[in-house]
């Protein structure tokens, strides 16, 4: 984006500058617009929010708490898509992590070891994806569809027959501290899960801007052959990115599991679609090479605000329709925005 500005020189017209401005900042404008609309809209028949205020402390805390999983996931997923690869298994990886974490905790493992073990599971799940895609050379979409099915299958098998999720019962009891991580406010009323999501996002921004991995990801997505020829180990780059996504999926699983205080093997269903949606909304080109971690984070905030806002306005069975339409719109607008460079 910055060299595009330099190339066009000083004689850029107002329209050109407006386009560049829009391209760089539209996501923030959309966020502001969504917040303004949701906080001022006062439809007589449908009170948008209890107490009529989107910007109430309670509501903001609530939205940010629910958003923790997707906020955790968005950064690493952006880097992976920038490198031109995709991971459809994130939802299943998240479910499996949630089940593993809940199983460890309900069997008496303390917080820190259970947390660490689940993150290790995330590393393994990500590494399997990387192995299938890079070593066995299976197309990313198919490889991660296989693991989508596999991880979900394992999560379902870990939960006993006839029980829907890992929860108190059958002689085992979930300890009282289980949902502190996802619900209990520690700073500004927000729980650990949210702050971990912020830390992960900051780490991903550092990776993108200050570390070789970020540059390598962009190079791999922009032109794999050129990247390879200039000495970049694209294989190692992509495997590392899959592992990062796996770790973030595990963290998201822990956040979701702790928020709902159960290990639900279906809790991550559809997460891959939400992740694709927020990353596309953030302007990441699906052909790879371009995108910003921070914008995906903002994209996730927009989607979650809209989801929560929508639930107060229309019945829940509108949700699939709206997410599908949003995905198509994001894909189309993403296409139109990135075409301006041609």
């Amino acid at each position: 984006m910055t060299h595009a500005t330099a190339q066009t020189g000083v004689e850029r017209g107002f329209g050109q500058r407006l386009k560049t401005f829009l391209k760089d900042y539209y996501i923030y404008l959309v966020l502001i617009a969504v917040v303004v609309v949701l906080s001022t809209a006062n439809l007589d028949k449908f009170p948008l929010f209890e107490r009529g205020n989107f910007l109430s402390e309670r509501n903001i805390i609530n939205i940010l708490r629910i958003s923790a999983p997707i906020l955790t996931l968005a950064g690493a997923f952006t880097l992976l898509m920038i490198s031109g690869y995709i991971d459809l298994s994130v939802g299943s990886a998240m479910s499996l992590s949630a089940v593993v974490y809940a199983m460890l905790v309900i069997n008496g493992v303390p917080f820190v070891p259970a947390f660490a073990a689940t993150v290790v599971v995330g590393v393994i799940l990500g590494a399997i994806n990387g192995f299938l895609v890079i070593r066995l050379k299976i197309t990313p979409v198919i490889a991660t569809l296989i693991t989508l099915s596999l991880y979900k299958g394992i999560a379902l098998l870990l939960v006993e027959d006839g029980v829907s999720a890992i929860k108190s019962g059958g002689g085992l009891k979930m300890p009282g501290w289980f949902n502190d991580y996802g619900r209990d406010g520690v700073l500004l009323g927000l729980p650990w899960a949210f702050w971990v999501a912020v830390l992960v996002t900051l780490a991903m921004i550092v990776v993108q801007d200050r570390m070789k991995l970020g540059k390598y990801a962009a190079a791999t997505g922009g032109n794999p052959t050129a990247a390879e020829l200039s000495g970049i180990n694209t294989k190692r780059t992509v495997i590392t990115l899959y592992i990062l996504v796996g770790i973030c999926a595990a963290l998201a699983g822990i956040a979701r599991s702790s928020f709902m205080s159960l290990g639900d093997p279906l809790s991550g269903d559809g997460m891959e679609l939400t992740a694709i949606l927020v990353v596309l909304l953030g302007g990441t080109a699906f052909s790879g090479g371009e995108g910003r971690v921070l914008k995906s984070f903002i994209g996730a905030l927009i989607i979650m605000s809209l989801t929560v806002g929508m639930l107060t306005l229309v019945p829940a069975y509108f949700q699939t329709l709206v997410v599908g339409a949003a995905l198509l719109l994001a894909a189309a607008s993403n296409h139109l925005v990135s075409r301006k460079d041609d």
Partner: peptide, 13 residues
Amino acid sequence: IIVTLGTMMLARG
């Protein structure tokens, strides 16, 4: 892949 995932949700929606 992205389009048809979107239209799948749209149709079911």
